[in-house]
Amino acid sequence: MANMTPEEVKHHIKTYVMVFVALAFLTVVTVGISYLDLGVTGGIVLALIVASIKGSLVACYFMHLIDEKITIYWTLLATVAMFLVLLFLPLSTSLAQTQV
């Protein structure tokens, strides 16, 4: 991001505004969904999908991950892997426990 021409920056600003509109819209969507009766599982899945889309928009455009350097990608790849391990491996042990 260090060497951008003013035109490029202006182009970026347009993107930011569009992303903002999308985020606001998705917030309304996710609140709306929660008032529908989708059952617990359906509700969780849908809400997490919407949240993931919003999160990706913020990360990709506001944080410029869409065109970042390879070092950052590697770092985040390792982090995401460990994050998923942390989220689901403890869960798997407790689920296995209740089945016994």
């Binding site: 390792a78 460990m82 391990v85 491996l89 798997s92 042990t93 296995a96 426990q97 089945q99 016994v100």
Partner: peptide
């Protein structure tokens, strides 16, 4: 890398299932 996915070997006697 592997050191992140071995930790529960400290917890065998907590009664986790045999698969895990």
């Amino acid at each position: 890398f592997m050191s992140f996915i071995v930790w529960a070997h400290h917890m065998y006697i907590t009664g986790m299932g045999t698969t895990i």
